[in-house]
Design a protein around this nucleic acid. Structure first.
Lengths: 152, 152
DNA sequence: CGAAATCTCGATTGATTTACTCGGGATTCG
DNA sequence: CGAATCCCGAGTAAATCAATCGAGATTTCG
């Protein structure tokens, strides 16, 4: 149950974009350099984020990517689900259609319910952090570090 | 971010054992049959659960496995962590030792904190369900189904 | 005692997923 | 036009997953 590099890199890239929200499109190359992610690999991730409508792209020279909406309205859950698919899926529970008749129906049904509830809790946790939260925290820490510098 | 078959099968097997807690050792073969899991594969999982001290084994004829402690004191988190390793790990955060100097230290530190908090929330969710909870719910549903039968 | 029932352990294997890399095409700005 | 971009699909090496297999060690029962 780990977050793959897609999720990790995706969040880093989105954090990067969030801090530049409103400055127009940011070329992928810059994000890749700052976040130390392979350009080609990041392209794939941005493609998925664009399909999920979390970013919009501008093609051609001076193009790039920007968030499709304010950082406060994009959660880590949005980013992670876009890149890694639905969270905490269990094979016996994933699809919408019912699986084959189980040996002990009661047990299987209980577990299906439990997995579902747990997945909801995980999604709630992931959705409780927005890109704006990350930006605010970054601003706070940078301010603190700066004032610390002046006191030397 | 899915639960692998190890986690899913492991929970099924532990649920099975929990419902027979106090009846002495249950042979793996029976669990495998009831839960429709390959015997050899389940052996591996039981080995991990034994090393995590969630079950104890009794060797020889009439042997088998039983829970090492009451169902109310074993959580789904215990089972899943024993079988799948620590939950919601992120490569850049997993080890205890610090990774190489990041490009933007503030960003990386914030994300490390966030991943850690999220992992805690996921663990809390997984630990909020015990094997006894599953058994209680099974008993409740079976009772309801039975009384339904009598009314036909 | 000996045979059957069990757990124990490590090796191997095929399929899938992950984490990339590569190459070329389409679009837009200057 | 040509450079800077995004766009897209194919390919690949390594890791992980989900088993499978085979050979032992231990214990009960007849």
């Amino acid at each position: 149950m780990r977050i793959s590099s897609r999720g990790e890199y995706g969040v880093r890239a989105m954090f990067d974009l969030a801090q530049r929200y409103g400055e127009g499109p940011i070329p992928l190359k810059l994000i890749a350099e700052r976040q130390e992610i392979s350009e080609h690999y990041l392209e794939q991730l941005m493609g998925a984020l664009r399909k999920a409508e979390l970013v919009v792209s501008v093609r051609g020279a001076q193009g790039g990517y920007e968030l499709s909406r304010p950082p406060a309205s994009i959660t880590l859950g949005d980013v992670i689900r876009a890149l890694e698919g639905p969270v905490l899926t269990v094979h016996g529970t994933e699809g919408e259609k019912e699986v084959e008749i189980p040996a002990d129906a009661v047990e299987r049904l209980i577990l299906a319910d439990v997995w579902k509830r747990l997945a909801e809790r995980v999604n709630e946790a992931l959705d409780s952090v927005t890109l704006a939260d990350l930006c605010d925290e970054a601003a706070r820490r940078r301010a603190r570090d700066d004032s610390f510098m002046y006191h030397i």
